[in-house]
Design a protein around this nucleic acid. Structure first.
Length: 839
DNA sequence: ACTCACCGGGG
DNA sequence: GTGTACGGTGAGT
């Protein structure tokens, strides 16, 4: 086949293989899953010149292997005008007209309103297309246009891979399971964080086929060899995916800097366009001369997908908002994938430890890559499933925003396929009167303090349900694609949820269905946000977004009125959910029946769900509360009930005090308070109980310059200890000692550089005279004040002012103190609030 | 109290 | 550029 005769469509491509010629296309699902049946794609590389490479993982009688296909496609873009390519030098032909020389620009006029992207332009070579446009535009605008991106509202152009996938209807991973991927993790251990100051001394490698290796460079002279070996091993193992935690921010940038310093190239890819192994490509975004490089570089390599589990963690936490730290070790523990035998070494001690005990560092480094594998399995199922829907690379989908990064490409693919004009935001903006200010979900605080017998109910997928029920989609989406796929996704998601439920837990099947439903949830939830995305989004529609939220507020009001009418007490409500208190003698069945009753009054398609019941709730502020479950678990939500300082003694106090406040055992709260005060005053607490842990951001030099104008406790603590060297990023603990401005550094345990948490516990309890752990020279009154003002204060809403003062006074109540009631009679209170906020 | 710059993560 | 982060925190006023 020659590209010139690519049939009626200048856009449509033909494969060098005939693999995709059979297999039916489901048209309605084509917009969601693509339509080309080619299976097993694990990577795609495409270039502006119209060349594309596809790597497929195929399994047949001969076993499993990777096939590489070469392909050609016609690079394309949307245009609002045709003018730039109508000059005499351009061979402009209607789409579908054969061109023997191949030097043509094809065009097609699309159905769409004036001002929209009504022209589809394509060519055998995208560079030719761009040259012609730049030439024409420069002429038209009377200045030198250097890049298509300067012509923002005239042309809509995507990256080559997106163009290829959208034009062909191909997607990644069709008929593959996550477990089929060949994933490799590697982790660098270096002598410093900065590649100008340090070098790689060890690399751990593992892959999903059972391979494990350690490469070492004991001396600086060995580093070059190590890098070459690392590249060779990756080529030999030939994984589809390379993964690590902070892969882009650290490992690849460090590696490429060190490789450059040895003048070697990182041949990590599969055989690329030139037939040789592809070299890692990175785009350093110019870092200013400042102390540190801020922006991250995106790396890519032909034939493999690069996955940073840090991105996956961020995205996960964007939804759950519960991960305290995004560090690999912390996250691994959070997800329960850290091995009990995991070796922990403080970052700055890794190289020192290696010098003394190399075996320990080897184990540490392998633990790292194993945890990355665990994280990937836990978090990358959804992006994997998304990659079999959206026309983008897996590695991009793993870090893309769900609206602009995933949903929009799906919409654009559908418009391209339907040969329909894309809306142009610029024309919509000017055509419409100013969009009214955007109002979001309603947030109410009806009561603060302690309530008992609390129920949580919420509307399942409120915004998507409203969009679907009331058919609210972007006006500019003339094909109605967003609502079509929203409906399809909602139905399919339910089916996958059900399939996951009946599948054997943790089986490949259940993982697949779970990942797919999670991916669909991401898309479903993105639909509303996408409409409100403003001029960023091609199909945004502020008016439609407003209609969704206003209907949402109406639904929430209806639920609240209905709950009140039935004798329950709403406590707080936020957009789609409400906490409310029910009479003491209600059973769970009664609660559920109530929720069902209230839900039955809502429009069909809007489902109110019973989410849970709690023995008690401390309502502090909107979105800030503590819950006690019926099996005695304390749940704390919102920043207002947490301390940013996080001295261990205060955290401990607050949790216990919250717990007993919610149980109504107020004498016990007083007792805990007094015990804590006494423990402080009797110096029963250790320095580590009162110490704050902070991360140093300034280098010694930076701090020295700002010190005279403003002293910072953390650095003063180090300087007081005679330490005038430290590294930015280092975490230290310190506490306040006696005397003005006396801050004391609390070094980490130094007896062993590494220890498992279990060892740690043992050492603390068994070695009673360890030097650093047992220091007690803290400033007693300072920490008593912290206890009162920073921790006890968080219980203020639970009591009347008098009761609160009595409960947390530092004076032992004397005989003559006249309090309204004795401690035994204090009850937590519940105050009605009249503040109803709309955010 | 409120704005503003900076940080995250990696050895 | 094989596209655009963002939300929390502590310092400074």
């Amino acid at each position: 086949m020659t590209t010139g005769e690519a049939g009626q469509a200048g856009i449509r491509m033909e494969s060098s293989t005939a693999l995709h010629t059979q297999g039916q296309t489901h048209d309605e699902d084509g917009s969601l899953f693509g339509w080309d049946p080619m299976t097993g794609i694990v990577s795609v590389w495409a270039q502006r010149d119209g060349r594309a490479l596809i790597w497929r993982r195929v399994k047949d009688e001969q076993g499993e292997r990777i096939d590489r296909l070469s392909d050609h496609f016609h690079p394309w873009l949307f245009a609002t005008i045709l003018e730039d390519v109508t000059h005499p030098g351009t061979n402009l032909l209607p789409e579908g007209t054969p061109c023997p020389t191949g030097h043509a620009i094809w065009f097609r006029e699309l159905d769409g309103p004036t001002g929209s992207y009504r022209y589809l332009l394509s060519s055998t070579d995208g560079r030719l297309l761009e040259r012609e446009i730049l030439f024409g535009a420069s002429h038209r605008l009377n200045y030198q246009v250097k890049n298509i991106s300067e012509l923002e509202h005239t042309y809509y152009r995507l990256g080559p891979v997106e163009q290829y996938l959208m034009a062909t209807g191909r997607v990644y991973f069709r008929n593959l399971n996550y477990e089929d991927l060949h994933r490799l993790q590697f982790d660098l251990e270096t002598t410093a964080l900065d590649p100008r100051q340090g070098r790689i001394f060890l690399v751990s490698i593992r892959d999903s086929r059972g391979f494990e290796a350690i490469l070492e460079a004991p001396t600086a002279n060995d580093e070059r060899r190590l890098i070459i070996d690392l590249c060779r091993i990756i080529r030999e193992r030939d994984p589809d995916i390379i993964e690590n935690h902070n892969l882009f921010g650290f490992d690849l940038s460090f590696l490429s800097r060190r490789a450059a310093s040895h003048d070697i190239s990182l041949t990590l890819g599969r055989r690329g366009p030139g037939g040789t192994h592809a070299i890692l490509e990175g785009r350093e975004e110019t870092l200013a001369i400042g102390p540190e490089a801020r922006r991250r570089t995106r790396y890519s390599v032909a034939g493999r997908e690069l996955i940073d589990t840090l991105d996956a963690v961020r995205r996960h936490d964007f939804v759950v908002r519960d991960i305290p730290s995004y560090g690999l070790k912390e996250v691994a523990r959070y997800f329960g994938i850290a091995s009990p035998k995991r070796v922990y070494i403080e970052g700055s001690e890794i190289y020192n430890t290696y010098m003394r005990e190399p075996e320990m560092v080897r184990r540490y480094a392998l633990d790292d890559v194993n945890e990355v594998d665990g994280l990937s399995r836990r978090l990358l199922g959804a992006p994997f499933a998304l990659a079999s829907m959206a026309p983008r690379r897996y590695e991009r989908l793993a870090s893309a925003g769900p609206a602009m990064g995933i949903l929009e490409p799906i919409l654009v693919r559908a418009y391209l396929r339907a040969r329909t004009a894309l809306p142009c935001q610029a024309t919509y903006d000017s055509g419409n009167t100013e969009i009214e200010p955007h109002a979001g979900g309603a947030v109410y605080l009806f009561a603060s303090g302690v309530a008992e017998h609390v129920v949580k109910a919420d509307v399942a997928s409120l915004y998507p349900s409203l969009m679907r029920t009331f058919k609210i989609g972007p006006a500019s989406d003339r094909l109605g694609i967003l609502l079509t796929i929203l409906g399809r996704l909602t139905d399919l998601r339910l089916a996958h949820k059900e399939a996951a439920r009946v599948a054997e837990p943790n089986s490949i099947d259940s993982n697949h269905h779970n990942a797919t439903q999670a991916a669909m949830k991401i898309l479903i939830n993105a639909a509303y946000g996408y409409m409100g995305a403003g001029q960023m989004a091609l199909f945004s529609d502020g008016r439609a977004a407003n209609e969704v939220t206003s209907r949402g507020r109406a639904i929430l009001s209806q639920v609240l009125r209905s709950l009140e009418a039935r004798g329950t007490l709403p406590i707080e409500a936020d957009t789609d959910g409400v906490y409310f208190a029910v009479p003491n003698d209600w059973s769970e069945e009664q609660e559920r029946a109530l929720v069902a009753e209230v839900g039955a009054e809502l429009p069909s398609g809007i489902r109110l769900e019973y989410e849970g019941r709690y023995r008690a709730m401390l309502s502090h502020e909107v979105k800030n509360y503590a819950l006690l479950t019926y099996n005695d678990k304390l749940i704390v939500r919102g920043v207002a009930l947490r301390s940013s300082r996080a001295e261990p003694f205060g955290e401990r106090f607050l949790r216990q005090a919250l717990h007993y406040t919610l149980l109504g055992n107020i004498p016990r709260v007083r007792q805990i308070f007094l015990d804590t005060v006494n423990a402080l005053r009797d110096r029963q607490l250790t320095a580590s109980d009162v110490a704050t842990r902070v991360r140093l951001s300034k280098s010694p030099a930076t701090y020295r310059t700002s010190r005279s104008s403003h002293q910072e406790p953390a650095y003063e603590a180090l300087l007081n200890a005679g330490r005038d060297e430290w590294l930015p990023g280092e975490r230290i603990r310190f506490y306040k000692g006696r005397g003005q401005r006396r801050y004391i550094w609390l070094p980490e345990a130094v007896a062993e550089e590494s220890t498992t948490p279990q060892h740690w516990q043992q050492r603390r309890s068994s070695q009673s005279h360890s030097t650093t752990q047992e220091r007690q020279d803290y400033d007693i009154e300072h920490y008593v004040q912290v206890l009162v003002t920073s921790y006890a204060a968080r219980l203020r809403k639970a009591f009347s002012p008098e009761d609160f003062n009595q409960l947390f006074t530092l004076d032992q109540p004397g005989l003559f103190d006249l309090y309204e009631h004795p401690i035994e009679e204090i009850r937590p209170r519940l105050e009605r609030e009249n503040a109803a906020l709309t955010l």
